[in-house]
Structure formats: C-alpha cells, structure tokens
C-alpha cells in the first residue's frame, strides 16, 4: 500500500512534466506537419514560466479561485490514477475541474468567456458520456471499475474493445481541444470567441490552467494506456500511435460547430459503444 502511495505521488509530481513535454512535442510535430520549423520542445514550459511572472489581472476574485481548484482536481485525478482507484471516481473528480473552470469563466461578465463557458459545457456534454461508456466497457470486461483490476486482468483490452478505443479517441480529441472539436477554446487564437473559456484568465491564472491541462494530458494518456495494460512497450506504442493520429486529424480537419459535435461525437460515439458493448456481452 505504501509503495503504491509513493508511486502515485511520484506520478503526480511527474505528470505535469510529462504533459508539458508531450505538449511541446505536439507543437513541434504540428509545426512539421505544416512545413514549419516549430518551437523548441521546452516551449510550453517557457510559456507557463512567463505567465507565472505576469502581473495578476482578474475580472473578479472567482477567477483567481477557480484555477486553483481546477488544478487541484486535475492533480488529484492523476494521483487517483496512480493509486489505481475507481475509474468512475476519477471521472467525477475530473468533472470538478471542468466545472470550476467553467464557473470561473462565467464569473466574468464578459460575453466571450461566457460563450466559451457555454461551449465548454457542450464539450463536457459530449465527452463525459463517452468517457463513462469507456469505463463501463472496462468494467464489463474486468468485472469492476477499479484500475487495479484492469492491470490484474492480465490481457490487453484493445482486442476486446477496439471500438471503445475509437470512442475514447473522440473524447480525447474533445478534451485535448484538437480540431475538429477545439470548440470552446482552441490553442490558436484565431477563433471567433477569442480562446473562449480562457479569454478572461490571464497571467498566473492562465498558467495554472495550462498546468492543469498538462495533468489532464497525462491522465488521458494513462487512460489510453489501459487498453494495453500488459506491457509497457505495447502501451507506449499504442499511445504514440494514437497521439500521432490525433495530431494528423487535428491538421486535416476544419473546426466544427458544437451542434455538429453534439450530433456527431455523441451519435457516433454512442453507436460505436453500443456495438462494442453488445458484441462484448455476446462474447461473454
């Protein structure tokens, strides 16, 4: 138990570095896909360090409060993942982060951050059911919602849940704010809602949200790795492949609207899940 705790703690400390590094590589590869030279790999870290040093500027105090809670929740998620805890529990804690991010954005009487917040809600509406479904499919195979049981299962989940991996891909695209679903806030500013949910967060508060995002990236990668929990190499290959695919999709699609996202992500996601779950229950 103690060793598990220490491992989880180490993971929590390492997660932002992993997430930041992945973001850096992401930006470099994106640049290469666009035939650009691209920023240094450490660029995300420079950005966050700089943001931490900026003057504080808020519309009201909730904007300072909410990012801290968001960060806490995101870190907690990774910690829980490290503890091999209940997937549903992780999911609910993830919601805490999302909810506070939105509340902070809505706390500013600014139309852009408000619209961004509304869209972020739509994004949550789209990816939350999908994530839960992925977890449910895990539980159907392993018999429980505990991550520990995924590892104890002894066989990779991907062959049994191939469609669920695609469903997770949908959720991943939305959560990572990748095109075509970078709807509530996109990494590039050229969007009609000016980075939407992030419009009013600035300086250190934005830095905290960015760090929280790194935690989320680490967590999402962790969740993906559960599909090949039996070998580190397999998991790594799967992750690299999935993330690269994600980047390519990001670069070959236009941004869609939230109405499309609700229809498409939810519709296709649900259909795939049902298919996989039905197939899975026949298999059992």
């Amino acid at each position: 138990m103690t060793s598990k705790f220490l491992l989880a703690l180490a993971l929590t400390i390492a997660a932002p570095f992993i997430g930041g590094l992945v973001t850096g590589i992401d930006r470099k590869i994106t640049a290469r896909l666009q035939s650009r030279y691209g920023p240094p790999i450490a660029q995300p870290f420079y950005d966050v360090l700089k943001l931490l040093g900026k003057d504080r500027m808020v519309v009201n105090m909730w904007q300072a409060l909410c990012p801290v809670v968001t960060l806490t929740a995101s870190a907690l998620c990774v910690f829980l993942f490290g503890m091999q805890a209940d997937l549903l529990l992780i999911f609910f804690v993830l919601t805490v982060g999302g909810v506070f991010l939105i509340m902070g954005a809505m706390a500013a009487p600014s139309p852009y951050s408000q619209i961004g917040a509304q869209r972020e809600l739509m994004q949550m509406l789209a990816y939350e059911p999908l994530l839960i479904l992925v977890f449910v499919s895990f539980s159907m195979v392993t018999g429980s919602f505990k991550i520990a049981d995924v590892y104890a299962y002894g066989r990779p989940l991907l062959p049994q849940l191939p469609l669920m991996f695609i469903v997770l891909g949908y959720a991943l695209t939305i959560k990572l704010r990748k095109s075509p679903f970078d709807i509530a806030a996109c990494h590039h500013a050229h969007q009609e809602i000016v980075r939407g949910v992030l419009t009013e967060y600035s300086g250190p508060n934005l830095a905290l949200i960015e760090i929280a995002h790194w935690f989320d990236v680490a967590l999402i990668l962790g969740l993906c790795s559960l599909f090949w929990s039996t070998s580190a190499l397999g998991a790594a290959t799967l992750l690299a492949g999935a993330y690269f695919l994600e980047l390519v999709i990001d670069n070959v699609t236009a941004r869609m609207t939230w109405r499309f996202m609700l229809q498409n992500a939810l519709g296709v996601g649900l259909a795939l899940s049902v298919l996989n779950i039905v197939w899975q229950s026949f298999n059992n």
Binding site: L33, Q34, S35, R36, S179, P180, D182, C186, H188, H190, Q191, E192, N251, V252, T253, A254, R255
Partner: peptide, 16 residues
C-alpha cells in the same frame, strides 16, 4: 478563410 473555420494547416499551406 481556412483559418476562420479553424483549418490551420490549410492556412499555412496557402500562405506558403
């Protein structure tokens, strides 16, 4: 225009 609907890589190619 591509940038307006969030197609960054198309933007980059056109400008290139």
């Amino acid at each position: 225009f591509a940038d307006a609907f969030g197609f960054e890589s198309l933007f980059m190619q056109c400008w290139r």
